[in-house]
Design a protein around this nucleic acid. Sequence first.
DNA 1: CGGAAATGGTTGAAGGCTAAATTACCTCGA
DNA 2: TCGAGGTAATTTAGCCTTCAACCATTTCCG
Lengths: 170, 170
Amino acid sequence: MSGPRWLNTSEMRAWRGLMGMSRLLFEQLGRELGKEAGLSMADYEVMVQLSEAEGRRLRMSDLAAMSLLSKSRLSHQVARMEATGWVRRESCPSDRRGAFAVLTDEGFAVLADAAPGHVEGVRHHLFDLLDPDEIEQLGAITTKLYQHLNTVVERDCAAPKRDGAVSEAV
Amino acid sequence: MSGPRWLNTSEMRAWRGLMGMSRLLFEQLGRELGKEAGLSMADYEVMVQLSEAEGRRLRMSDLAAMSLLSKSRLSHQVARMEATGWVRRESCPSDRRGAFAVLTDEGFAVLADAAPGHVEGVRHHLFDLLDPDEIEQLGAITTKLYQHLNTVVERDCAAPKRDGAVSEAV
DNA sequence: CGGAAATGGTTGAAGGCTAAATTACCTCGA
DNA sequence: TCGAGGTAATTTAGCCTTCAACCATTTCCG
Protein backbone atom coordinates (compact mmCIF):
# COMPACT_ATOMS: atom_id res chain seq x y z
CA MET A 1 0.00 0.00 0.00
CA SER A 2 1.60 3.23 -1.16
CA GLY A 3 0.11 6.28 0.55
CA PRO A 4 -2.10 8.54 -1.52
CA ARG A 5 -0.25 10.74 -3.99
CA TRP A 6 -1.00 14.14 -2.44
CA LEU A 7 -0.87 17.25 -4.57
CA ASN A 8 2.43 19.06 -4.99
CA THR A 9 2.76 22.83 -4.79
CA SER A 10 2.06 23.49 -8.43
CA GLU A 11 -0.93 21.21 -8.46
CA MET A 12 -2.30 22.68 -5.28
CA ARG A 13 -2.08 26.16 -6.70
CA ALA A 14 -3.93 25.10 -9.83
CA TRP A 15 -6.57 23.24 -7.84
CA ARG A 16 -7.29 26.02 -5.39
CA GLY A 17 -7.20 28.56 -8.19
CA LEU A 18 -9.56 26.63 -10.38
CA MET A 19 -11.97 25.95 -7.60
CA GLY A 20 -12.09 29.48 -6.27
CA MET A 21 -12.03 31.13 -9.63
CA SER A 22 -14.83 29.15 -11.19
CA ARG A 23 -17.03 29.42 -8.13
CA LEU A 24 -16.65 33.17 -7.94
CA LEU A 25 -16.83 33.68 -11.68
CA PHE A 26 -20.14 31.93 -12.20
CA GLU A 27 -21.64 33.36 -9.05
CA GLN A 28 -20.66 36.85 -10.07
CA LEU A 29 -21.90 36.50 -13.63
CA GLY A 30 -25.13 35.04 -12.31
CA ARG A 31 -25.57 37.93 -9.92
CA GLU A 32 -24.96 40.49 -12.66
CA LEU A 33 -27.33 38.72 -15.05
CA GLY A 34 -29.99 38.66 -12.38
CA LYS A 35 -29.59 42.32 -11.54
CA GLU A 36 -29.31 43.66 -15.06
CA ALA A 37 -31.69 41.41 -16.95
CA GLY A 38 -33.71 39.54 -14.37
CA LEU A 39 -32.69 36.07 -15.43
CA SER A 40 -30.57 33.23 -14.10
CA MET A 41 -27.60 31.60 -15.79
CA ALA A 42 -29.78 28.58 -16.48
CA ASP A 43 -32.41 30.77 -18.16
CA TYR A 44 -29.72 32.38 -20.24
CA GLU A 45 -28.03 29.15 -21.24
CA VAL A 46 -31.30 27.53 -22.28
CA MET A 47 -32.34 30.54 -24.32
CA VAL A 48 -28.99 30.74 -26.07
CA GLN A 49 -29.22 27.12 -27.14
CA LEU A 50 -32.75 27.58 -28.41
CA SER A 51 -31.94 30.82 -30.18
CA GLU A 52 -29.16 29.15 -32.14
CA ALA A 53 -31.23 26.15 -33.12
CA GLU A 54 -33.12 25.60 -36.35
CA GLY A 55 -36.55 27.15 -35.89
CA ARG A 56 -35.59 28.26 -32.40
CA ARG A 57 -36.76 24.89 -31.16
CA LEU A 58 -35.16 21.78 -29.74
CA ARG A 59 -36.29 18.45 -28.38
CA MET A 60 -36.15 18.42 -24.60
CA SER A 61 -33.49 15.70 -24.55
CA ASP A 62 -31.23 17.52 -26.94
CA LEU A 63 -31.67 20.75 -25.08
CA ALA A 64 -30.86 19.02 -21.82
CA ALA A 65 -27.68 17.54 -23.26
CA MET A 66 -26.57 20.84 -24.78
CA SER A 67 -27.21 22.82 -21.62
CA LEU A 68 -25.66 20.16 -19.40
CA LEU A 69 -28.87 19.85 -17.40
CA SER A 70 -30.53 16.67 -16.24
CA LYS A 71 -33.83 15.90 -17.90
CA SER A 72 -35.66 16.49 -14.68
CA ARG A 73 -34.06 19.81 -14.05
CA LEU A 74 -34.71 20.95 -17.59
CA SER A 75 -38.33 19.95 -17.27
CA HIS A 76 -38.77 22.16 -14.22
CA GLN A 77 -36.70 24.90 -15.80
CA VAL A 78 -38.80 24.96 -18.95
CA ALA A 79 -41.97 24.85 -16.89
CA ARG A 80 -40.89 28.04 -15.15
CA MET A 81 -39.87 29.67 -18.41
CA GLU A 82 -43.14 28.68 -19.98
CA ALA A 83 -44.97 30.35 -17.11
CA THR A 84 -43.10 33.60 -17.75
CA GLY A 85 -43.78 33.33 -21.48
CA TRP A 86 -40.21 33.00 -22.74
CA VAL A 87 -40.63 29.45 -23.97
CA ARG A 88 -43.49 27.38 -25.29
CA ARG A 89 -43.83 23.60 -25.51
CA GLU A 90 -44.95 21.86 -28.66
CA SER A 91 -45.60 18.19 -29.10
CA CYS A 92 -43.59 16.23 -31.62
CA PRO A 93 -45.58 14.75 -34.50
CA SER A 94 -43.13 11.96 -35.35
CA ASP A 95 -42.75 10.67 -31.78
CA ARG A 96 -45.71 11.25 -29.58
CA ARG A 97 -43.65 10.86 -26.41
CA GLY A 98 -41.47 13.74 -27.48
CA ALA A 99 -41.74 17.47 -26.86
CA PHE A 100 -40.13 20.53 -28.34
CA ALA A 101 -39.17 23.59 -26.39
CA VAL A 102 -39.63 26.67 -28.55
CA LEU A 103 -38.20 30.11 -27.81
CA THR A 104 -40.98 32.69 -28.07
CA ASP A 105 -40.50 36.12 -29.61
CA GLU A 106 -40.71 37.57 -26.16
CA GLY A 107 -38.03 35.18 -24.96
CA PHE A 108 -35.84 36.09 -27.89
CA ALA A 109 -36.26 39.77 -27.13
CA VAL A 110 -35.31 39.24 -23.50
CA LEU A 111 -32.23 37.32 -24.57
CA ALA A 112 -31.23 39.92 -27.14
CA ASP A 113 -31.54 42.52 -24.43
CA ALA A 114 -29.48 40.56 -21.91
CA ALA A 115 -26.73 39.30 -24.17
CA PRO A 116 -24.55 42.38 -24.65
CA GLY A 117 -24.30 43.04 -20.93
CA HIS A 118 -23.55 39.43 -20.22
CA VAL A 119 -20.78 39.30 -22.80
CA GLU A 120 -19.36 42.46 -21.32
CA GLY A 121 -19.31 40.70 -17.97
CA VAL A 122 -17.52 37.70 -19.38
CA ARG A 123 -14.92 40.02 -20.90
CA HIS A 124 -14.54 42.08 -17.82
CA HIS A 125 -14.09 39.17 -15.42
CA LEU A 126 -12.25 36.85 -17.74
CA PHE A 127 -10.79 37.80 -21.10
CA ASP A 128 -9.78 41.36 -20.34
CA LEU A 129 -7.42 39.92 -17.74
CA LEU A 130 -5.72 37.43 -20.05
CA ASP A 131 -3.42 37.90 -23.01
CA PRO A 132 -4.02 35.96 -26.24
CA ASP A 133 -1.54 33.26 -25.29
CA GLU A 134 -3.26 32.63 -22.02
CA ILE A 135 -6.64 32.47 -23.71
CA GLU A 136 -5.25 29.86 -26.08
CA GLN A 137 -3.82 27.88 -23.19
CA LEU A 138 -7.02 28.06 -21.23
CA GLY A 139 -8.97 26.91 -24.27
CA ALA A 140 -6.67 24.00 -24.92
CA ILE A 141 -6.65 22.83 -21.33
CA THR A 142 -10.35 23.15 -20.64
CA THR A 143 -11.37 21.59 -23.93
CA LYS A 144 -9.19 18.58 -23.31
CA LEU A 145 -10.52 18.12 -19.79
CA TYR A 146 -14.06 18.70 -20.93
CA GLN A 147 -13.83 15.93 -23.49
CA HIS A 148 -12.46 13.51 -20.96
CA LEU A 149 -15.17 14.37 -18.48
CA ASN A 150 -17.87 13.94 -21.06
CA THR A 151 -16.94 10.33 -21.56
CA VAL A 152 -16.63 9.73 -17.81
CA VAL A 153 -19.97 11.30 -17.03
CA GLU A 154 -21.64 9.44 -19.85
CA ARG A 155 -20.30 6.13 -18.54
CA ASP A 156 -21.09 6.99 -14.93
CA CYS A 157 -24.55 8.37 -15.53
CA ALA A 158 -25.79 5.97 -18.18
CA ALA A 159 -25.23 2.69 -16.39
CA PRO A 160 -26.88 3.78 -13.13
CA LYS A 161 -29.26 5.85 -15.28
CA ARG A 162 -29.35 9.63 -14.90
CA ASP A 163 -33.14 9.32 -14.60
CA GLY A 164 -35.50 6.48 -15.39
CA ALA A 165 -35.88 3.09 -13.84
CA VAL A 166 -33.14 0.62 -13.05
CA SER A 167 -33.23 -2.73 -14.78
CA GLU A 168 -32.64 -5.27 -12.05
CA ALA A 169 -29.79 -7.73 -12.59
CA VAL A 170 -29.28 -9.17 -16.08
CA MET B 1 -22.75 53.18 -29.93
CA SER B 2 -20.37 50.42 -30.95
CA GLY B 3 -22.02 47.03 -30.95
CA PRO B 4 -21.08 44.61 -28.21
CA ARG B 5 -17.66 43.04 -28.60
CA TRP B 6 -18.72 39.43 -29.18
CA LEU B 7 -16.31 36.63 -28.45
CA ASN B 8 -13.89 35.53 -31.14
CA THR B 9 -13.18 31.88 -31.91
CA SER B 10 -10.40 31.49 -29.41
CA GLU B 11 -12.35 33.16 -26.67
CA MET B 12 -15.45 31.15 -27.42
CA ARG B 13 -13.50 27.93 -27.18
CA ALA B 14 -12.07 28.94 -23.83
CA TRP B 15 -15.45 30.06 -22.54
CA ARG B 16 -17.34 26.95 -23.55
CA GLY B 17 -14.50 24.79 -22.37
CA LEU B 18 -14.27 26.44 -19.00
CA MET B 19 -17.97 26.38 -18.44
CA GLY B 20 -18.47 22.77 -19.44
CA MET B 21 -15.33 21.51 -17.82
CA SER B 22 -15.87 23.08 -14.45
CA ARG B 23 -19.52 22.09 -14.29
CA LEU B 24 -18.78 18.48 -15.11
CA LEU B 25 -15.65 18.33 -12.99
CA PHE B 26 -17.26 19.47 -9.77
CA GLU B 27 -20.40 17.47 -10.40
CA GLN B 28 -18.38 14.35 -11.00
CA LEU B 29 -16.14 14.83 -7.99
CA GLY B 30 -19.20 15.52 -5.89
CA ARG B 31 -20.88 12.36 -7.13
CA GLU B 32 -17.81 10.27 -6.39
CA LEU B 33 -17.40 11.79 -2.97
CA GLY B 34 -21.02 11.09 -2.19
CA LYS B 35 -20.85 7.52 -3.37
CA GLU B 36 -17.52 6.61 -1.80
CA ALA B 37 -17.62 8.56 1.43
CA GLY B 38 -21.19 9.78 1.89
CA LEU B 39 -20.39 13.47 1.94
CA SER B 40 -20.87 16.50 -0.25
CA MET B 41 -18.20 18.79 -1.64
CA ALA B 42 -19.31 21.43 0.85
CA ASP B 43 -18.94 18.97 3.73
CA TYR B 44 -15.49 18.08 2.49
CA GLU B 45 -14.35 21.64 1.98
CA VAL B 46 -15.52 22.72 5.41
CA MET B 47 -13.86 19.77 7.09
CA VAL B 48 -10.58 20.38 5.27
CA GLN B 49 -10.50 23.97 6.44
CA LEU B 50 -11.24 22.97 10.00
CA SER B 51 -8.75 20.13 9.98
CA GLU B 52 -5.95 22.48 8.95
CA ALA B 53 -6.81 25.11 11.52
CA GLU B 54 -5.24 25.58 14.93
CA GLY B 55 -7.16 23.38 17.33
CA ARG B 56 -9.34 22.16 14.48
CA ARG B 57 -11.60 25.10 15.13
CA LEU B 58 -12.49 28.32 13.35
CA ARG B 59 -14.81 31.22 13.88
CA MET B 60 -17.87 30.93 11.67
CA SER B 61 -16.99 34.09 9.75
CA ASP B 62 -13.46 32.97 9.01
CA LEU B 63 -14.63 29.54 8.00
CA ALA B 64 -17.21 31.10 5.70
CA ALA B 65 -14.59 33.27 4.04
CA MET B 66 -12.14 30.40 3.62
CA SER B 67 -14.73 28.04 2.17
CA LEU B 68 -16.21 30.73 -0.07
CA LEU B 69 -19.62 30.25 1.50
CA SER B 70 -22.01 32.97 2.57
CA LYS B 71 -22.54 33.21 6.30
CA SER B 72 -26.07 32.04 5.89
CA ARG B 73 -25.15 29.03 3.89
CA LEU B 74 -22.39 28.08 6.28
CA SER B 75 -24.78 28.38 9.18
CA HIS B 76 -27.11 25.83 7.57
CA GLN B 77 -24.19 23.69 6.52
CA VAL B 78 -22.74 23.54 10.01
CA ALA B 79 -26.16 22.87 11.47
CA ARG B 80 -26.44 19.77 9.31
CA MET B 81 -22.91 18.67 10.08
CA GLU B 82 -23.55 19.18 13.76
CA ALA B 83 -26.58 16.93 13.50
CA THR B 84 -24.47 14.16 11.98
CA GLY B 85 -21.82 14.66 14.64
CA TRP B 86 -18.94 15.75 12.44
CA VAL B 87 -18.78 19.25 13.84
CA ARG B 88 -19.60 20.85 17.14
CA ARG B 89 -20.27 24.50 17.93
CA GLU B 90 -18.58 26.28 20.79
CA SER B 91 -19.24 29.78 21.93
CA CYS B 92 -16.43 32.28 21.94
CA PRO B 93 -15.40 33.59 25.35
CA SER B 94 -13.90 36.85 24.14
CA ASP B 95 -16.85 37.85 21.98
CA ARG B 96 -20.14 36.46 23.06
CA ARG B 97 -21.72 37.02 19.67
CA GLY B 98 -19.16 34.72 18.14
CA ALA B 99 -19.14 30.99 17.63
CA PHE B 100 -16.52 28.44 16.79
CA ALA B 101 -17.07 25.47 14.59
CA VAL B 102 -14.97 22.57 15.84
CA LEU B 103 -14.19 19.42 13.91
CA THR B 104 -14.99 16.40 16.07
CA ASP B 105 -12.83 13.29 16.18
CA GLU B 106 -15.53 11.51 14.29
CA GLY B 107 -15.53 14.23 11.66
CA PHE B 108 -11.77 14.03 11.40
CA ALA B 109 -11.95 10.28 10.94
CA VAL B 110 -14.54 10.64 8.20
CA LEU B 111 -12.36 13.19 6.45
CA ALA B 112 -9.23 11.08 6.78
CA ASP B 113 -11.16 8.23 5.27
CA ALA B 114 -12.52 10.28 2.38
CA ALA B 115 -9.41 12.26 1.47
CA PRO B 116 -7.28 9.69 -0.38
CA GLY B 117 -10.12 8.71 -2.70
CA HIS B 118 -10.99 12.32 -3.34
CA VAL B 119 -7.41 13.24 -4.19
CA GLU B 120 -7.31 10.26 -6.52
CA GLY B 121 -10.40 11.64 -8.21
CA VAL B 122 -8.85 15.06 -8.62
CA ARG B 123 -5.78 13.43 -10.16
CA HIS B 124 -7.78 11.18 -12.40
CA HIS B 125 -10.07 13.87 -13.79
CA LEU B 126 -7.61 16.72 -13.81
CA PHE B 127 -3.88 16.40 -13.27
CA ASP B 128 -3.32 13.04 -14.92
CA LEU B 129 -4.51 14.63 -18.14
CA LEU B 130 -2.18 17.61 -18.04
CA ASP B 131 1.56 17.88 -18.38
CA PRO B 132 3.59 19.99 -15.92
CA ASP B 133 3.59 23.01 -18.22
CA GLU B 134 -0.13 22.95 -18.51
CA ILE B 135 -0.54 22.65 -14.76
CA GLU B 136 1.69 25.71 -14.36
CA GLN B 137 -0.35 27.62 -16.92
CA LEU B 138 -3.62 26.64 -15.34
CA GLY B 139 -2.34 27.70 -11.95
CA ALA B 140 -1.12 31.04 -13.23
CA ILE B 141 -4.33 31.82 -15.07
CA THR B 142 -6.77 30.75 -12.41
CA THR B 143 -4.86 32.42 -9.61
CA LYS B 144 -4.81 35.70 -11.45
CA LEU B 145 -8.52 35.54 -12.21
CA TYR B 146 -9.30 34.45 -8.70
CA GLN B 147 -7.57 37.45 -7.21
CA HIS B 148 -9.41 39.81 -9.50
CA LEU B 149 -12.73 38.19 -8.67
CA ASN B 150 -12.08 38.38 -4.99
CA THR B 151 -11.84 42.13 -5.13
CA VAL B 152 -14.90 42.38 -7.36
CA VAL B 153 -17.01 40.16 -5.17
CA GLU B 154 -15.88 41.97 -2.06
CA ARG B 155 -16.86 45.29 -3.55
CA ASP B 156 -20.14 43.95 -4.94
CA CYS B 157 -21.16 42.04 -1.87
CA ALA B 158 -20.01 44.42 0.82
CA ALA B 159 -21.65 47.63 -0.28
CA PRO B 160 -25.10 46.04 -0.72
CA LYS B 161 -24.14 43.88 2.27
CA ARG B 162 -23.81 40.13 1.83
CA ASP B 163 -26.15 39.78 4.80
CA GLY B 164 -27.39 42.32 7.30
CA ALA B 165 -29.43 45.46 6.87
CA VAL B 166 -28.84 48.30 4.46
CA SER B 167 -27.97 51.69 5.87
CA GLU B 168 -30.24 54.14 4.08
CA ALA B 169 -28.65 57.07 2.24
CA VAL B 170 -25.61 58.75 3.82
C1' DC C 1 -48.45 -10.41 -33.50
C1' DG C 2 -47.51 -9.65 -28.55
C1' DG C 3 -45.06 -8.79 -24.52
C1' DA C 4 -40.61 -7.13 -22.41
C1' DA C 5 -37.57 -3.61 -22.29
C1' DA C 6 -36.03 0.81 -23.56
C1' DT C 7 -36.90 5.82 -24.39
C1' DG C 8 -38.82 10.63 -23.77
C1' DG C 9 -40.53 13.26 -20.67
C1' DT C 10 -43.07 14.74 -16.35
C1' DT C 11 -44.11 14.82 -11.47
C1' DG C 12 -43.79 15.21 -6.34
C1' DA C 13 -41.42 15.12 -2.22
C1' DA C 14 -37.30 16.12 0.33
C1' DG C 15 -33.65 18.79 0.99
C1' DG C 16 -30.29 22.61 -0.21
C1' DC C 17 -29.47 27.60 -1.32
C1' DT C 18 -30.38 32.67 -1.19
C1' DA C 19 -31.98 36.87 0.47
C1' DA C 20 -33.95 39.46 3.95
C1' DA C 21 -35.19 39.93 8.56
C1' DT C 22 -33.88 39.06 13.37
C1' DT C 23 -31.33 38.58 17.66
C1' DA C 24 -27.65 39.51 20.37
C1' DC C 25 -23.65 41.76 21.31
C1' DC C 26 -19.88 45.08 20.83
C1' DT C 27 -17.82 49.85 19.95
C1' DC C 28 -17.37 54.40 19.60
C1' DG C 29 -18.25 59.07 20.40
C1' DA C 30 -20.82 62.93 22.45
C1' DT D 1 -23.41 56.66 30.33
C1' DC D 2 -26.23 56.51 26.69
C1' DG D 3 -27.47 55.63 22.20
C1' DA D 4 -26.42 55.01 17.26
C1' DG D 5 -24.50 52.16 14.36
C1' DG D 6 -21.75 48.21 13.26
C1' DT D 7 -20.67 43.14 13.53
C1' DA D 8 -21.49 37.83 14.43
C1' DA D 9 -24.41 34.57 13.60
C1' DT D 10 -29.00 32.49 13.07
C1' DT D 11 -33.67 32.12 11.27
C1' DT D 12 -37.38 32.20 8.06
C1' DA D 13 -39.53 31.76 3.67
C1' DG D 14 -39.35 30.98 -1.04
C1' DC D 15 -37.20 29.17 -4.87
C1' DC D 16 -34.22 25.69 -7.09
C1' DT D 17 -32.26 21.12 -7.51
C1' DT D 18 -32.19 16.22 -7.00
C1' DC D 19 -33.88 11.71 -6.68
C1' DA D 20 -36.98 8.30 -7.43
C1' DA D 21 -41.21 6.98 -9.13
C1' DC D 22 -44.22 7.34 -12.83
C1' DC D 23 -46.87 7.51 -17.48
C1' DA D 24 -47.00 7.05 -22.31
C1' DT D 25 -45.08 5.54 -26.33
C1' DT D 26 -41.88 3.13 -29.18
C1' DT D 27 -38.69 -0.56 -30.25
C1' DC D 28 -36.95 -4.93 -30.16
C1' DC D 29 -37.39 -9.67 -30.88
C1' DG D 30 -39.12 -14.35 -30.25
